[in-house]
Structures are given as structure tokens and as C-alpha cells.
Amino acid sequence: MVGALVSVVPLAQGDGFFRERDEADCVQSNDTVCLDWALDNADRYVSPTLEHLLLVGVSVAAGLVIALGLSVLSHRRRWLMPAFLATTGVIYTIPSIALFLLLLPISGRGTTTALIALTLYTLQIIYRNIVTGLANVPDAAKDAGRGMGMTDRQLFWRVEMPLAVPEIIAGLRIATVSTVAIATLAVFAGAGGLGDVIYTEGVQAGVFKTAIVVGSAIAIAMAIAFDVVYIGAQRLLSPWRQVRPV
């Protein structure tokens, strides 16, 4: 609440905490971003950042595994696909903060709830991309594979899945970058992460500008870093897409 935003920075009160007086002044007055202070206190951002990375890494990995499982199922039984798409779509529509809180009575406060919610989110993007990737596999390649005596399983793992890799990575890329952003809200499920820096240390602690800026900057930098990594992975894992057609 705005009313509660009195400018008190409880963390800035211990004595001997700051190396230089003017850094502490900067924090006290809170009318600009205290970059020097942030750098001197860099260690206080390490564990939120690691928590954040963990939330993103685990939920995207779990999302990939579950989405792959769903796609194997819906590949064998086509009628499952609309059901899966609709279900993951509905979950994706629920605003993330609401989803975190809806899970509280079920899985309690903490990292587990956050991971469940974030994983559910990634499902929609990853599953939809796998489905698209599989649908884009040329019919002729599938027919030829079958005609040469590949079993359904061989066709799936040797032809269809590898050809869907570019779309799958594109999906992972979107899912990961979105999850980096959404995971800031995990603070409302009591799961820490960079949301702790932005919200608890920033907004709640009298709108402490430095925390808000630093937390946001780390989150955005993390998203960009993931994006770059995925572009590299894309190149590496789909060499046939890199060639120039005649």
C-alpha cells in the first residue's frame, strides 16, 4: 500500500555496515540509485540471483520433460492433443500471481509452490512448440522413413523429433525468458528470488530505489544472457538449417 511506503530502510541502520559515510548517506536519502553502495554490498544479491536461476532452471527443465512426455502421448493418441493444448492454454491464461496464490492451500508457501506454478507456465509454450515442430515435419520424409522400414518409434526419435528441434529450442527460449520475468513474482509465494530484492527490499522497504533498479537489472540481464545462449544452441543443434540452399 502506498500509505505504508514511509522511507525507512531498515537494512541501512546497523553501524559499521558501510565502508564510506557518503554511501550510507545515499541510502538514507534514497533520492537516487546508490551504485557504489550496491557494488560494495554485491554479496547480498548473490543468493536471490542463485534462487532465481534455480527457479528458472528447474521449472524450464521440468516443463521440457513433461511437455516431451505429453507430446509422445498425444503423438500416439491424436485425440489427446486438443485436450492438452486447451489445458495448458487455460493454465497459461491465469495471471501468474494468481496461480502462485491458488496453489498456496495445496502445496503451501515456498519454493515447491513456485516451481509448480512456473513449470505449469512453461508447459503451454514448450508443448505448443513441440506440436508445431512435429506438424511441420515434411509428410514426404515421414512416408519415406516408414517406407524404408522404420518403426513408429524409430521414425519419432530419428526423424520427427530431430526435425522439430529448432521449434523446440525456439519454445525453450521464449519459455525461459518469460520465466525469468515471471519468477520475480515468486516472492508472493514465499520462494525468494529477485522478486525479494525488487519487492521486499525495494517497494516494501520504503521504495528503496537502489534495490528496485539492481533487482530489475539483474533479472533483465539474466533474460538477455539466456537469449544469447539459446541462439548459440540453435545454431549448434540444427546444422542443416545453417546451410545455404542452392
Binding site: 525469468v180 520475468a181 530489475s216
Partner: peptide, 9 residues
Amino acid sequence: AIPELALIA
């Protein structure tokens, strides 16, 4: 890439 929480904060 921009977190909604960061934008509001």
C-alpha cells in the same frame, strides 16, 4: 524480458 513487477516498481 521485462518483468511486470520490475516495471511497476
